[in-house]
Design a protein around this nucleic acid. Structure first.
Length: 425
RNA sequence: GGAGAGGUGGCCGAGUGGUCGAAGGCGCAGCACUGGAAAUGCUGUAUAGGGGCAACUCUAUCGAGGGUUCGAAUCCCUCCCUCUCCGCCA
């Protein structure tokens, strides 16, 4: 959420920064609302103060032995009643305006960081660096072909169970997924991340706090009879771990690694990535999440990205790091590095992790502060996939495929999977 | 699902209509005492918004929302949540 005060005092800055994201907004109406809200609040405050004084006066006089039915008391009561009526009128107006203001503030995306390069779309993203040597060969299979051949999943029956874009992993596929989850959790935990296994049903406040609501309701699955949604990412429950909290500054940074299944409706992506493990309504993800002191967030952004990269490096999967331009930035992010893994079968880099610095955007929505001396300050939050598990499996299958039809597995997975290859057929 | 109890500051806990943002205790911070520490004493210690250079000040907040009243933590209504017992259950 944008800072109300910033909107009021420096709307030009906000307009310009949102403009960098490709949004053309006229903030004048919002600024007006914000001013009105403050004006109403200030009027109401002074009226309430007057009312309080009268209330105290009545109490004092009665205490001093004046008959509660005396005329002087009656007069004060009348005064109090008049004020009460005025306050009620102001309150009604203020409520309407505050709700409108809040609604609008919640609907604006984060302002991009000064370091985020300008651009219109993903075409303007910049490649920062590349790691490993991408296999260039035209005869390779795509991951879903390999998975079908080795019977690592069952798509057709999953449609029977659920619908399209759901998968049942089978045999080695199921085991490999489990191995990857454990491997990733162990790797991050060994670096000091605190492990979490959060609820996957989250309430509206949690989704609002991390930025998915109110704007992207159509992207999440909602329970019919409860105020609960299926979480689209562990980022949501982990943000709300500390919602409405003040974290003592000596406890920062808090670094969490959370495994969760993720659920996304993928509305509007019909026909895209229809085969295999790339785009599913339900997938597994390991999420890294930091709560940091605002002055340390940039360094933290580099570190969280490096921690996500470490997974790919340990798995010996070639990838590149992309800096998203302002036009491609997610709603809550002020700066984002995407990791794209090389899929030799598809002959393309595919996003496998997105590491975002959200600044105080989520912290303001979720009221997560830290305390320095007497003053409180919003913390900064960061999140990064470490990694999307299904896509990691796809990358392992495509990068490890052998001439004899088997798939060579990364060495580090041996203790987790129990073998260094998937046998042919 | 049935029956009951309850939600007060970082924590415990008092408060059933009148300067109550809230006694007391614990915890925490500072100071004093000490060679140093413990113990002790003193002082301070919620959040948000508005105003002020500042000291400071105004307003709101005792689960949430409404109501009664000049005045509500305290009374009334609705909702949410937690706990205990019973039932059911992985």
């Amino acid at each position: 959420m944008l800072d109300q005060r910033l909107v009021r005092e420096n709307p030009t800055l906000v307009t310009n920064e949102l403009g960098r994201r490709g949004l053309n907004v006229d903030l004048a109406p919002l600024q007006l609302i914000a001013e009105q809200q403050r004006e109403l609040e200030s009027q109401r405050n002074s009226l309430q103060g007057e009312g309080n004084r009268i209330g105290r006066e009545v109490g004092q006089r009665i205490k001093n032995g004046i008959d509660p039915q005396a005329n002087e008391i009656k007069a004060l009561r009348d005064q109090g009643n008049k004020i009460k009526q005025k306050v009620a009128v102001l309150e009604d107006k203020e409520k309407l305006i505050s709700a409108k203001l809040k609604e609008q503030l919640l609907s604006f995306p984060n302002l991009p960081s000064a370091k985020c390069p300008n651009g219109k779309s993903e075409k303007d993203n910049q490649v920062l660096r590349q790691w490993g040597n991408p296999i260039q060969e035209t005869s390779l299979q795509e991951h879903w072909e390999i998975a079908e051949r080795l019977k690592l999943f069952d798509i057709e029956r999953s449609v029977r169970i659920s619908q399209s874009r759901f998968v049942t992993l089978t045999n080695h596929g199921a085991r490999l997924e489990r191995a990857l989850i454990n491997f990733m959790l162990d790797l991050h935990a060994s670096k000091g991340y605190k492990e979490l296994l959060p609820p996957v049903l989250v309430n509206t406040a949690s989704l609002t706090g991390s930025g998915q609501l109110p704007k992207f309701a159509e992207e999440s699955f909602k329970c019919a009879d409860d105020d609960l949604w299926l979480t689209p990412t562990a980022e949501v429950p982990v943000t709300s771990m500390h919602r409405n909290e003040i974290i003592p500054s000596n406890q920062l940074p808090l670094r969490y690694v959370a495994y969760s299944p993720c659920f996304r409706r993928e509305a509007g992506s019909y026909g895209r990535d229809t085969r295999g493990l790339i785009r599913l309504h339900q997938f597994n993800k390991i999420e890294l999440y930091w709560f940091v002191h605002p002055e340390h967030s940039e360094a933290a952004h580099n570190q969280i990205t490096a921690d996500a990269e470490a997974v790919l490096q340990t798995l010996e999967l070639p990838y590149r790091v992309i800096e998203l331009c302002t036009g491609d930035l997610g709603f809550s992010a002020s700066r984002t590095f995407d990791l794209e893994v090389w899929l030799p079968g598809a002959g393309a880099f595919r996003e496998i992790s997105s590491c975002s610095l959200c600044g105080d955007f989520q912290a303001r929505r979720s009221a997560i502060r830290t305390k320095e001396g007497k003053s409180t300050r919003l913390v900064h939050t960061l999140n990064g996939s470490g990694l999307a598990v299904g896509r990691t499996m796809a990358a392992i299958l495509e990068n490890g495929q052998q001439k004899d039809g088997s798939v060579k597995l990364p060495e580090v997975l041996v203790p987790y999977f129990g073998a260094n290859q998937l046998p042919p057929e």
